[in-house]
Design a protein around this nucleic acid. Structure first.
Lengths: 144, 144, 144, 144
DNA sequence: TTTT
DNA sequence: TTTT
């Protein structure tokens, strides 16, 4: 069992890549998830320059990766359901480093761009079928 | 382990009561949680008059119960973290009935009333300290 | 978002049925999920004849339904990941009744039958490929 | 919202420390959480020397930290409910490093040491009140 | 630095 | 490297 639910805001626009051979889409972004501190504690942390959110890296595969790249942008509020993954890689200094990130199985868009605050929507030529209205996008059929 | 996360909209205004002896606040409401169906499946269900959401009863205790009663209203989007509870009671017909509901440990408000679409905010004399701004309210110190 | 994780023990053997036309397997069982009370509170509840667990109905579809029917039995400890579903049906008395249950997307077996305490394992002719050893069975490819 | 549930085995005995001024107990351990791969995929990964589990660092505070230190040991199966935390620290090489870990709000012991396979239980003089029997330990009153 |  |  490895089950995560996060609600937070993108700290930057999603980055979309395609896996060389397979052509599978992957997008990555970082989520600022509020620590849920009391107002006083929050002010204290902020005055000390300490973060009041946790910053968590998200990986999304397949069609949902393309949806994220197309419809999300820095600052947007999302809910992510997924699993925690640990990976290691060799640093440029030859030292093995470890990464912990969340592989999303499902991303729900909780907020939509409007005409005033438009980042990532205006440049969309795609159709919006299925993502208009109030119900969240869900996508469970991601290949991982 | 008994852990639930739901995101959905209130189907009606919260009802607030106080437990007779202790004076503890309890509020209850029902959440419409989108089933996350594909657009086609959703239309099919709607055309048949079948629901495209799950309706789940939520119980909130303590200070958070009062916050919910004060700041939430029908239609508002919230995230609930809690646990599933099963209860039985004796129906008026003498038959024992069973209820399954979610006892919230934490409710986050994902949407705020504005001046145009104001239900439950305008009639508020309470101060809004700690619930203004965009970060969600969290409340883990509920007595249950 | 509709995400549930439960750990509990089966209150009875799973019931396996097949949907008439499609032939899809469904199995159902009820889980006793400990309320996690303190020792004192637990004794108090027990002395009053009140339950110290929540009883939650689980529905499993597809191949995992057959795995549950084959390898689980009353008393066995499992972890369930899934979503809460609400349904209504017309009672024999003509009154509409509502049911809340958990549709499992994943069931992990946390305990295995041994030769002394064997319920549901001894009478198995199926092969055990993939469910031997200690790692939990997972099954995300259930058709729902 | 920041909600995690993991089931896995300790990769080593828990380490218990006390925070200097406050005296608060903290224990840390790493959990091997099965990736839930199919039998074939699992063999393939193993033959390549790739991990078939995710390794996730857990932090536990307060009384539960002491319970973990006292009753858990390498190899034991647990369920953890908590939240993902991100932290940064300055490496010895002067470079800022980032850590992602899970702060547990609740740890359930799913397995108990027996007399044959006793690691961490035999040296216990503490009483076992409340942790014997089959129901899991839960502890929600941890100070964080 | 990894468990069964 | 961080969002509102």
């Amino acid at each position: 069992m490895n089950n995560v639910v996060l609600i937070g805001r993108l700290t930057r626009d999603p980055e979309l890549r395609y896996i060389p051979m397979s052509g599978t889409a992957v997008s990555t972004f970082s989520l600022a998830v509020d620590k849920g501190l009391s107002k006083e504690k929050k002010q204290e942390m902020e005055s000390k320059g300490q973060p009041t959110a946790d910053f968590i890296n998200i990986v999304v595969w397949g069609k949902m990766a393309e949806n994220c790249a197309n419809y999300l942008a820095k600052g947007r509020l999302v809910a992510v359901q997924g699993r925690i993954q640990s990976r290691s890689y060799d640093g440029k200094d030859g030292v093995k480093r470890y990464i912990t990130e969340v592989v999303a199985g499902n991303v729900e868009f909780l907020e939509w761009g409007d005409s005033n605050n438009n980042q990532g929507f205006g440049n969309q030529s795609s159709d919006f079928s299925g993502i208009e209205g109030f119900h969240p996008i869900e996508d469970d059929d991601i290949p991982f």
